[in-house]
Amino acid sequence: MSALIRPTPARPTPSEPGAARQKPDAAATAAPARAALVLAHSKAQILEQLRIPVAVISSTVFPTLALLFFVIPQESVTADPLASLTAIAQLALFGVMSSFLFNYGIGIAEERANPWSSYLRTLPVGPVPPTIARALPAMLFAFFALLPVLVIGALLTAAPEAFGDGGLSWWRVPLAVLVWLACGLPFLALGLFIGYLCTSKVAVAVTQVVFFPMAFAGGMMLPPAAFPYWLDVFSLILPSRAARDVSVFALSGEGLHAGSVLCLIVWTVLLGGLALWANRRDQGRHFR
């Protein structure tokens, strides 16, 4: 059996000045690499989520069901390649956004009520690796949710006609998947922000109140072309609208506004900063 304690560095002799005070030394504080910590936390997250398969399955099929119920019955949309692509991109982003917001807003708030998470904060790891380790599995599960959307879209709409001879290159499909996941980042940060700030009951309410208006005003349910003028103008400053425009552009090459990318970046940075702030604040006053 190996020792229960690591061999300690040479102790200073009592005659040395300041000998009674432990100096931080390089050998004793060589922490595991940050990538290793991110990996360990991601693995734990994925395992924990896979052990409750119903939760994974329901969030995976959600965007596909929305596509089946709200888009496929509308023949005017499914017969038009461009409208089909737009609808697919909108619902894909809808799925990514709901997965990130709900899993993280409510998930973190619930976890914080569990003493295991305060134990985790006593481990030698800062707030960044666990936060990244939340994003990676979220993206992985969102990715699995996007695949059936693409399959249904290809089989039941006119979307494939837009590719090849229709003028669009096939590389847009994998690119769009990556763009959709990236467009989910501001919502991931918003979820983290809500989760670290609210108790779980408050988080459920806040997430829903934030999610539906944001999704609607962002043009994920109705295309912005159907909006009244004032809503169209207002929605341009929302992260959901910017994300929607970038997502639709990635798949169909249309609908991008001048400020969309900038707007998305500004929101991501802003919400990311708020999430980190809420996380740090949480460390200081977990119980009141």
Binding site: R6, R21, Q22, K23, P24, A28, T29, A31, A44, L47, E48, R51, I52, N114, P115, W116, S118, Y119, T122, L123, P124, V125, G126, Q283
Partner: peptide
Amino acid sequence: MFGRNPLDPKSRLQLGITPQATSVPQTL
């Protein structure tokens, strides 16, 4: 803690803790 602020994760590299509340990750 080991000459550092305990809020610095590095200060906790040589520290082991058993919390008062018994809590484990249920599904792991």
